[in-house]
Design a protein around this nucleic acid. Sequence first.
RNA 1: GCUGAGGUGGCAGAAUCUGGCUAAUGCGCCGGUCUCGAAAACCGGUGUCCCUUUGGGACGUUAGGGUUCAAAUCCCUACCUCAGCGCCA
Length: 427
Amino acid sequence: MLDIKLIRENPDLVKENLKRRQDNEKLKWVDELLKYDKKRREAIAKVNELRKQRNELTEKIAELKKKGEAVDSIIKKVKNIPEEIKKLEEELAKYEEKVQYYLLRLPNLLHESVPYGKDDSENVVVRIVGKQPKFNFQPKNHLEILQDLGLIDIERAAKVAGNGFYYLKEELVLLDHALQMFAIDRLRKKGYKLIQPPYMLRKQAYMGVTDLDAFHDVLYKIEDEDLYMIATAEHPIGSMFMDEVFTKKELPLKLIGISPCFRKEVGSHGKYTKGLFRVHQFHKIEQFIFCLPEQSWQLHEELQKNSEELYQELGLHYRVVNVCTGDIGAIAAKKYDTEVWMADNQFREVGSNSNCTDYQARRLNIKYKEKEGQAPLDFVHTLNNTAIATSRTIIAIIEQYQQKDGSVEIPKALRPFMNGIEILRKK
RNA sequence: GCUGAGGUGGCAGAAUCUGGCUAAUGCGCCGGUCUCGAAAACCGGUGUCCCUUUGGGACGUUAGGGUUCAAAUCCCUACCUCAGCGCCA
């Protein structure tokens, strides 16, 4: 959410930002928002005036009663004021709803370093790391390999839960867990604090951390409950400190979340959906930071470095892209995607790293103050970055480490976390 | 899930029964006086919003409704906390 004062004072800045995002249909929203904001403030003035009148008369009633004098005539005079107030308040509520509608939908201001572009084809490659694996045979995709090894069953998963689910088996389960333990181990050594959050959230908490499209396209809702299955640990961790005030010395607060992630993936038709790439559930280790505004850009690079170190230690070939203005999404001010190389010679996303500046924090009402007992100064900044998303990283490992005989080598970094297993082999 | 007791500012805590009496008082925090400096003491301030801003006003007692001229106070709902009971891996 943007600061209404900023929009009032710099409407052109907000409009320029929308143009860069190619969100041209939202341009008129800025004027609409300001129109309703003005009406809102006028209504507030009127309501205040009426309340003042009522309060004065009410006080007179109390005063006269104390003296034991008659109050009937004043009560008659004041009696219809509450109704007028109510009418005006209803009008005011309408304006407030409008203002809120636009505020919740206007996207974050982009950082100047975000490249201009219309969609993911115009994301800018920042760097390519590692070497493309060379095979002296025709490489297979992960699904074929895993099925040959007998480590996955997606047919039965489809039978009981539908497309997009899977049964992992034996060593593949260990690999999934090893990836998580590996990421946790490395990040804890950097001082990040581990959190296992609730796997469901109320709507109110969810509103603060994501955009409204998510409620339909991404989130599973529990029937008859005000609860949504989380799509990432980012969400329960972001909302964890809702309506709270940090002291400066508590910041930056660097956290690692571990959780399963549940996603509906509505509207993913036509996208790459093979095997484990686009699934309804997977595990993820997530980095999350609450910090002072002046710290966030440096920490954004730190988060990027952290996750790249993991991919490097796993020996994976990957690239990093600076996500362009047309592809970045409403909440981030800047976003890097990390994309791993897959056997069909495509790079595909395994993680993304967002600096949300104060956009999430304003919605969640998370502020900071100089020290205990003082008034809050301003909103904090929030950042989140994938450390490891298991399913997609599994794809990269299986496809990049496959051998001619159909076996798959386990990266050395993972072996201590999976009972020393060095290779996945058909039995 | 049931029963009972609760939820008041950054914190503690009164007012709730019996609606009108500055949300008292203390702590913390900010500023000032004093001091070489600090502590103590004393004085002032300490949430949000609106306006025609040396000022005026509205809102604010977990949240949302209701009753009333008037609600922290009475009624309803949700959420949360505590206690007891029940159920459960």
